[in-house]
Amino acid sequence: MVLKVKDLAVSRGGLTVLEGLNFTLSPGQALVLRGPNGSGKTTLLRTLAGLQPPAAGDIVGDPETIAYAAHADGLKPTLSVRENLAFWAQVFGTSDLSPAIDAFNLGTLLDRAAGALSAGQKRRLGLARLKVTGRQVWMLDEPTVSLDTSSVEQFAHTIRDHLKNQGSALLATHIDLGFEATVLDVSPYKAKLRDLPVLEEGLL
């Protein structure tokens, strides 16, 4: 078990959006979050990544094992592909860029400025960053946005590889990536209305 969630509630803008979440993530396991837009998948991922505190419940796991990838890729347009990757490698204390470069087919783009990449290429670079971190648990928010079919296949392959090496992945995505994954639909966990903040409760 690398991550265990007990009775978790997450909130956005002071309102609880999801509650009563219970699940575990084991090495080699992929967990796919499903649910309509605005249902709180991003909020859940940000909470698990440690960017915001849970509204209730516990998250058991080492934050030092988590690598988080948001909607935005965090790329610097004036730096080259290689410089972007090398920076994150240094931040995470790793040095070998080649597996990430190979996995996402970035070899021919290495010296191009990230600002000159197409949307799909940027996304590939953003995902390559995950591999560079060397961390065990990947958390991905809509990873396949703006990827073409072959890139999606490449991405799915990388995830399979990661799982095979005892890594885990937590993905919020709508499309079927074609690897074995546990699916968690967050809709049933939508918070009830009684969960208004304490200040607003029945005082009027």
Binding site: L15, L193, L196, P197, L199, E200, L203, L204
Partner: peptide
């Protein structure tokens, strides 16, 4: 406090 209560009730109606 009253203003926040009102906002909360309005949010509840919208939901």
């Amino acid at each position: 406090i009253r203003a926040r209560q009102l906002r909360a009730y309005m949010a509840r109606e919208r939901m």
